[in-house]
Design a protein around this nucleic acid. Sequence first.
DNA 1: GCGCCTTGTGCAACAAGTTGCATAAAGAAT
DNA 2: ATTCTTTATGCAACTTGTTGCACAAGGCGC
Lengths: 194, 194
Amino acid sequence: MSLPYAILTALLEKPSSGLELTRRFDKSIGYFWSATHQQIYRELGKLEESGAIRALPGPRQPTRGQKKEYEVLPAGRDELAAWVARIEDPKPIRDALLLRLRAAGVVGTEGLEAEVRRHLALHRAQLAEYRAIEERDFGEGGKSEVDRLRHLVLRAGIDLERFWIGWLETARAELADLGAGAAADARTGPAATA
Amino acid sequence: MSLPYAILTALLEKPSSGLELTRRFDKSIGYFWSATHQQIYRELGKLEESGAIRALPGPRQPTRGQKKEYEVLPAGRDELAAWVARIEDPKPIRDALLLRLRAAGVVGTEGLEAEVRRHLALHRAQLAEYRAIEERDFGEGGKSEVDRLRHLVLRAGIDLERFWIGWLETARAELADLGAGAAADARTGPAATA
DNA sequence: GCGCCTTGTGCAACAAGTTGCATAAAGAAT
DNA sequence: ATTCTTTATGCAACTTGTTGCACAAGGCGC
């Protein structure tokens, strides 16, 4: 659905080979749309076939194991522009940890608090990483249109991490609170607390 | 990955048939882990085969088009309890709208503001729905362990919607601000603003 | 020259999720 | 009685995403 457009965007920002794209996905676009090199190569093939991109004519092209750079053609740019304005509903959340909290209601919370703490640490680390990028890339003023939009996206990432950190702290407190007394009856069944 | 556990949780809360599960997914568990009836039937088959659940012996079982209720067996309950404490990293965000904002940086923001406004309305509606559920199910005190955990999960949903609403408002303002002057050169290329 | 590591491209098989449709039973409508 | 709708289960085909591996070229050590 969205991967081809992510690739088109990356290629418009800078023509690249498959592996270069993979690396760039690992640090910037991949923060909100990750992809493995496999997906990227497959999609590059499709995009080339459909005429949205083309391989730059380099020294020698046809062999395997040789770098192959792509650039976006006008048709690809048009498709991307159309996608930007397309009507497409937001996808509902899909989060396994929330599911696990819910499951803990019926089978007990044993071991969950440690996992919540671990996630908390991971989200704090991610927040720190985002903040470092913000500092580095959007420190001073004088922002172009591209910069302002990129910063906006980054701020979504930052605020999302902040949300998770806040919520996980609440969750940890709640689990600790349930902990002591409830640990015993959680093992046999949760209904006893009522 | 998580779907079988979502189903086990739902079945422990109340033994059900495939279609009943589908309906329940549409209103409660599905808020953070959605599934179609197809996925659910397939997964029920696998879970039954692996001995995690079994069909309740009803009037007549074997025919098609006949309701078939399932309940969780001890093995299934144990698997679920193990999953609750399992180490599993949070998945990175995957959001098409953020991607579209980023794409707008290179192909122009035309048509995006309307889409942002539409999403804003959808998230406000979702928030209202969650708040109504909160009012209905967790209005007064006297909460059991299950209730407290369920409420915690619901609050994650509520705060996530609040996050999106806040961010989308910022985005809309930013797009409106870029709008007037930038609309012209966005069509030809974004670099002109620098 | 020969092994070895890195860079680079790609196939194949699988897992998860989506879409469209077929089938069957039971009850309501006429 | 027969048609229509609702409830219910399920197959088949497809798309997306993941994992493991194969293969090719070039640079480096010795």
